[in-house]
Amino acid sequence: MTDRLTSLREAIEAVLPNVDGVLALRIGPGGISASHLFSKEHPEDLAKLALWPKEPVPDTLKIILRAHPDAKLAIVCRGCEERGIVEMFKHAQLNLDNVTLIGLQCEQAEAEFCRCAKPFTVHSKTTVGQSIKGVPDPVTEKIAAMSQPERLAFWKQEFEHCIKCYGCRTICPQCFCNVCTLEDEKWVETGRLPMANPSMYHLIRAMHMTAKCVACRECEETCPADIPLAVQFRLMARDVKELFNYEAGAVMDQKPPQLLVLEEGDYERSGLPH
């Protein structure tokens, strides 16, 4: 059996002649991977094709497409990245007419690292690797199981560590706004560290990620304070699924439910008074 890297290389080679470039990861100095546009002009680059550590490729795709709207591109994406691309498409941030998705299925160790419930692609026509089942997220479960005062104390302590670098917002593939509510004095107090409890920054960001977060965990990875940021997003995503039967990145032409009218049964599940 060929390994994933070889299979991926073959898959890229197969599409290369038909596109202007294939966006994937390339290994750089010090074992750091970064997005790279592989092209037929430089087939030798493929020797440096990499799989891991993952990098947020959807954002790079957006940047390239902004500059070259007519480019024909392919992109190698994992499950979370594919979901990210779908969400960006749904929010009119990407035009996918000329984009081919090459799905890369994650391996057990990778999925466990990300505590990922869906380590596989669903939209990509070409896929590489064996798709595996989701794995549990013990961090989220642990926090969800806390009592209310425990949770309050836990988050207070975590958010006190936040240095407001805005890194989590910046790396998030779903944070593509031109102006950011988190930078608006009206909503988030500036010039105060540690920030006041409860953290408006994190509450508002969690609200904004509701029905939008694709569970790529880039924010957690980037956070210099090591705050388990994805936990709240994941809990919210669970509610959105339970209440409104919606999952970010799952269906191409579905709008976030909180924008739309109530469907049969939504109200009953919402827990609001009758």
Binding site: Q93, F176, N178
Partner: peptide, 26 residues
């Protein structure tokens, strides 16, 4: 117009279809 990112969330949520998306301007 300056800051709108063209995500069209507002359009989906308007009960009156009062908002339109201008393709040319995004």
């Amino acid at each position: 117009e300056e800051t709108c990112v063209g995500c069209q969330q507002c359009i989906a949520s308007c009960p009156y279809q009062a908002i339109v998306y201008r393709e040319d301007k995004g």
